[in-house]
Design a protein around this nucleic acid. Structure first.
Length: 767
DNA sequence: CAGTGAGCGAGCTTCCGCTTGACTT
């Protein structure tokens, strides 16, 4: 009987491609990523015994592992996961979990999913590289120690459920620090001077080389210009060149898709995944700008055929990102001849972008001719500059786009005198650095070498779902802008209003992020340091080279961490969370504070710690935050009414008292033990008539979605079809079963068999 | 789902990186 062979890779799409190259006797299976990991609950690292890790096969991976075990029986197993740290670890975990015998286990690595690359790799199998595996283990254990030792500290000192980690805490820090820079930025008004000259029957626009500092200076300048002469005293022509960018990596794809298509990072990755699964593009989680030889020659053929030899410039790009592990190619179409691909409009747009970028990367630079005219003004040091730009050859811009219209300067000689037609001084404002967007944050993290292509999108999601960061559209504000014009010698002043600071999809930190960042900066400075990951990586490289053991690295790291944990455990909550006095309550003469408690921000009237002898009347009174205010911006006027909550609104038609209050989930009405959300309305002003209407509407709606009511157990209509609920667990009504005919017994049975409701991340009230 | 707020108590939360469907009310 012929020898059985099993090839194991990470991804089913890769498995499918490989299986096409192979004859009978070979089966290709995928692990779907890592198959073993540290336990989700508990540290899983034995600090007393050399940081020995415990690995588990996750519940969702049991099936995969069983299937692999079955297929591996009696077969030669080829471990063909990626050649990087994580890929080597996957190969090792597979060999451990499957208890593979070394004699029949071969480790192979290839960088292109082609038949020749696979054959070449299979001709040179090796054993699993334990040094590389150990570097991965060190990385994994380090991240676990940081995440699982720091997070509980935040639960105690700030709020339960918070998280800290090597990657996410730096992401949050970047956003907090950028916001503080912006808040602290002092904008400066300056005046930009532009002029229109006349040169031999042609209009020539120019700009003063430097901005002027104040309105008065600008006004004086325009007056002076009236009596001045202007003369060309220099013409400089330079050849310019614009080069195409390297083909996409995950990070640059996310940035460009955000810029050109306004896709979120997550959206881009989901669409790319579909294109990849359907064989249209190469793997989308990569940090490499490398193209295979095959792709380079195919692009060359396509360019020669469709654009001609002048446009062809085959080249290889070096990856500049320092953390790159280059297990994959750059992101490119699998065939350049396929100019359109994708199942829907968004996929097609993303494919187009990838196709253009990859093809353009193999095309010639664009050639430009830049001309700069210097225009001197009599009795003034700073010259005017006029710029011209002509595109002599479009090169890669033909495919990539972005060619600007030519700016042609009129024929002019040096020394030529120019006539001034008009001059304008327009006030401009210095701007702080822009807030991060999802895509620019990814770019920054990649520059710092923090995070991997597969984690950018999840990290962006984590910092938002933990309540650290909000993605916001900023409305901007109106600003008075002054300008002065000099038209045919007549000077006039104008004021106009301009909208400044409006922006879309920017990442803004919450007060929670500020508290957490301040806490981590104070007590765990090294860990949130921008270079922490880079330093760790250099140790991991030493482990991979066999010059350092993973135990040595982790031992040293933890010896540094332990005293920080001990010290920070001693600080009190009061030291870590802010307290802001808003003013004095005119009625009681007691101070009003905005504070941050375990469940979010709240208001307090009176001192937290009344003096010993004082009676209980002096205990502080608590109240919820006014809607859409934060700890930083809530005012005394907004705060005072909140102490009147809950407020009696009136009665229902049958005499049940109705009250209005604000809880963790926003404003609500309460009738006995029934709660009805009134999100978007003000509990302070809602009246009885309105309340009755809302209650009726709510009760009607509830009755409508109820199919059967057994008291505790009900059959309801939901978004995903009919389901049974007991308030804790939900169970789908099986298709074919008429929901209205369900008996109580059947409902109980369905609920019993239903999987426990998946835990959803706890929603946090906004800070 | 609709309490509270310091700190204590039980028991819960949490990391990063590899990969897709399963799942949601």
């Amino acid at each position: 009987m012929a020898q059985k062979n099993l090839i194991i890779v990470e991804s089913p799409a890769k498995a499918k491609t490989l299986s096409k190259f192979l004859g009978p006797g070979y089966s290709v299976k995928s692990t779907f990523g890592h198959i073993r990991d540290l336990p989700k609950k508990g540290l899983g690292v034995d600090k007393e015994h050399g940081f020995k890790p415990t690995y588990e096969i996750g519940i969702d991976k049991q099936k995969v592992v069983n299937e692999l075990k079955k297929t591996a029986r009696g077969a030669v197993v080829w471990l063909a996961s990626d050649g990087d740290r994580e890929g080597e670890a996957i190969a090792w975990h597979v060999s451990q979990a499957l208890k593979l015998r070394p004699q029949v286990t071969k480790r192979i690595v290839f960088h292109e999913i082609t038949k020749p690359a696979l054959s070449a790799a299979m001709d040179h199998p090796r054993a699993v590289d334990m040094d590389l595996v150990n570097a991965q283990q060190a990385r994994r254990i380090l991240d676990r120690l940081v995440g699982y030792e720091l997070s509980p500290m935040l639960w105690k000192k700030i709020q339960p459920g918070l998280s800290a980690g090597r990657v996410q805490s730096v992401a949050v820090r970047l956003i907090v620090e950028r916001e503080r820079e912006i808040q602290g930025f002092k904008t400066k008004g300056q005046f930009k001077i532009t002029a229109d000259f006349m040169a031999g029957g042609h209009k020539l626009p120019a700009e003063l080389k430097e901005k002027l500092p104040a309105l008065k200076v600008a006004e004086e300048f325009l007056n002076k210009a009236n009596g001045s002469t202007f003369r060309v005293n220099g013409i400089q022509t330079k050849a310019g060149k614009r080069n195409p960018s390297a083909p996409f990596t995950t990070s640059t794809l996310q940035q460009e898709a955000a810029r050109q298509l306004r896709f979120s990072v997550k959206q881009t990755m989901t669409l790319a995944q579909r294109l990849y699964e359907n064989g249209h593009i190469t793997y989308m989680r990569t940090d490499s700008t490398n193209l295979s030889e095959l792709a380079i020659s195919e692009a060359e053929r396509y360019i020669l055929k469709n654009y001609g030899a002048r446009y062809s410039d085959p080249k290889r790009y070096k990856t500049s990102v320092r953390s790159a592990q280059e297990a994959h190619e750059a992101i490119r179409p699998t065939g350049f001849a396929r100019t359109v691909a994708g199942a829907d409009e968004q996929q097609r747009k993303l494919y187009q972008l990838i196709w253009r970028r990859a093809l353009a990367s193999q095309m010639s630079p664009a050639n430009l001719q830049n001309t700069e005219l210097t225009i001197a003004m009599s009795d003034f040091q700073i010259p005017f500059i006029a710029k011209g730009e002509i595109l002599n050859f479009d090169g890669y811009l033909k495919v990539w786009g972005g060619a600007k219209d030519d700016v042609v300067l009129p024929p002019i000689k040096s020394g030529q005198k120019l006539k001034l037609l008009a001059m304008t001084a327009l006030e401009t404002f210095t701007k702080p650095l822009a807030r991060y967007s999802e895509a620019t944050l990814v770019k920054k993290l990649e520059e710092l070498g923090i995070g991997r292509p597969s984690t950018y999108a999840p990290t962006i999601n984590t910092v938002q779902s933990r309540g650290y960061v909000e993605k916001k559209d900023l409305e901007g504000s109106l600003r008075q802008v002054q300008s002065i014009t000099n038209k045919s010698g007549k000077i006039s002043m104008h004021t106009q209003e301009l909208l400044v600071g409006a922006d879309r999809g920017k990442l803004v930190p919450t007060p929670l992020a500020e508290m957490t960042t301040d806490f981590l900066m104070k007590h765990f400075t090294d860990i949130v340091d921008y270079d922490f990951t880079a330093r760790a990586e250099s140790d991991l490289d030493k482990i991979a080279d066999g010059h350092l053991t993973w135990q040595q690295m982790i031992k040293k790291f933890y010896a540094g961490l332990e005293p920080l944990l001990a010290r920070s455990a001693k600080v009190s909550r009061a030291e870590t969370v802010p307290l802001r006095e808003l003013g004095t309550d005119p009625a009681t003469k007691k101070p009003i504070f905005a504070r941050y408690g375990r469940f979010g921000p709240f208001l307090q009237r009176g001192e937290a710690k009344p003096k010993k002898d004082q009676d209980t009347l002096n205990k502080p009174v608590f109240a919820p935050m006014p809607p859409s205010t934060t700890l930083d911006n809530v005012t005394l006027e907004q705060a005072l009414p909140m102490f009147k909550l809950p407020r009696g609104v009136g009665q229902t038609e049958i005499g049940e008292p109705i009250s209005a209050d604000i809880g963790r989930f926003g404003p609500f009405l309460k009738i006995n033990s029934e709660f009805i959300s009134i999100k978007g309305r003000d509990p302070m002003i809602i009246n009885e008539t309105q309340a009755r209407e809302i209650i009726k509407e709510h009760r009607d709606k509830k009755a409508k979605q109820t199919i059967r009511d057994f008291g505790d157990i009900r059959v309801l209509k939901g978004r995903y079809g009919p389901y049974v609920t007991n308030g804790v667990k939900n169970a789908r009504v099986p298709t074919g079963q008429e929901p209205a005919n369900l008996s109580l017994e059947q409902c109980r049975e369905l609920l019993k068999n239903a999987a426990g409701s998946r835990k959803r991340p706890r929603r946090r009230s906004k800070a």
